[in-house]
Design a protein around this nucleic acid. Structure first.
Lengths: 215, 215
DNA sequence: GATTAGTTCGCACGACCGTGCGAGATCCGG
DNA sequence: CCGGATCTCGCACGGTCGTGCGAACTAATC
């Protein structure tokens, strides 16, 4: 009995496959952000979507493709939820603050139910395994490079002291964002992001040219 | 052909089981720190140790017990590698610095090949699943509480300003430790821990009563 | 030397994994 | 109305998982 006619009245529409494809990736992102990309399972996805395993498998022709497409899809979500909002701010210090705030807001709003998708990947593929490791590596370097870029602009604009080490400051801004993400998810308490906000504020204040570098 | 007599000349010694038990936990910690506790597999452990699956399984009578004993064993390693060295410093600011330094050193020395075992758990069980989540939760709260405790002592001793929010400062100290761990493992570059050291130093300087709060 | 406790073995079970294949169901262009 | 595309299906495969069981072997005790 292959395909017990869709039962619901709406007949199969043009390009039903694209819809399914997107729905699968949606569920995959949700699952992977909670339990990790490697415990993403075709059978489980199928069950969750009320679809046969073959129905899922046919859309990606290997598990690896499924994983890669899931990462790509999550990348688009991240771009939409973090990069785009932050881009409203002018390049430099304002953009730097906007990036941090956009990240914390994205954690706070629970865009992914298991916390930041990429933070999860960072922890999961921290050991040098397979091709996904390189992708994660590049993602992290890109994020840090973006922060550094705006630090540099802020320095040239005189909004940050020019002696501060850019890579070090990027690290110090990123650190509280990550920890806020992990603890907010672990404790199920989005208010943890306020700790992140305070930390970012303090770090930027310490790097500001006006020496009001205390909380 | 069960048990092809141990082949090597050394005959089975008293309490061979305890040795095996410990060897299994050793391999389990190694594996779990790299690939996560949930991809810890009895079959894989057995293969890695050149032993039958039953030979592994018999020592723990369920997978859950294996996982719990692995966490406990890693806790002992952490205690030996971080808590004990730090305890040499007097309580308060010195202990606080010693704890951060001990953690970074433990990351740097690669005590676990996949980076800090507990940081991995923090990321892996950030979603509320099962009994292990509670254990991870408690571990993290304990670590933060320990930092807070020595912050309080340092404040009473006048080594840190008494107005600073203890929980916030603990968060700001923990954040660079975690990120240093993740990036050092991801980039295979232990020198990342120096970023963590600099961040800790800056954060403590900003909280110090003498206002030399710049890098 | 027989007994006993302890350790590891082979083997089997059901469940789930990723992957393939052929077959129906539906839709679209002719 | 017909023929190809497109989806999704059921089914089957080999592999690995966690878990049990009985048996073989060793070392220590009587």
């Amino acid at each position: 009995m292959p395909m017990p006619p869709p039962t619901d009245d709406t007949p199969r529409r043009r390009s039903d496959g694209e819809q399914t494809h997107a729905a699968i990736l949606d569920a995959a992102m949700r699952l992977a952000s909670i339990e990790g990309l490697s415990s993403l399972t075709i059978g489980r996805l199928a069950r969750e979507l009320g679809v046969s395993k073959s129905g899922v498998f046919a859309h990606f022709r290997s598990k690896q493709r499924l994983q890669q497409e899931t990462i790509a899809a999550a990348g688009e979500v991240f771009e939409r939820e973090v990069f785009v909002p932050a881009s409203a701010a002018p390049a430099g210090l304002a953009r730097l603050e906007a990036l941090c705030e956009a990240y914390l807001s994205y954690v706070e709003r629970g865009v992914f139910p298991g916390g930041c998708f990429f933070a999860h990947l960072l922890a999961e593929f921290d050991a040098p395994d397979g091709p996904i490791h390189d992708e994660v590596d590049a993602t992290q370097r890109g994020w840090l490079a973006l922060l550094e870029e705006h630090i540099a602009i802020a320095q040239h604009a005189g909004d940050l002291r020019s002696e501060v080490d850019r890579a070090q400051l990027a690290f110090e801004l990123y650190a509280p964002l990550e920890l806020a993400n992990y603890l907010a998810t672990l404790y199920r308490d989005p208010s943890l992001t306020d700790r992140g906000r305070a930390a970012v504020r303090a770090t930027l204040a310490a790097a500001s040219p006006t020496e009001r570098a205390w909380r």
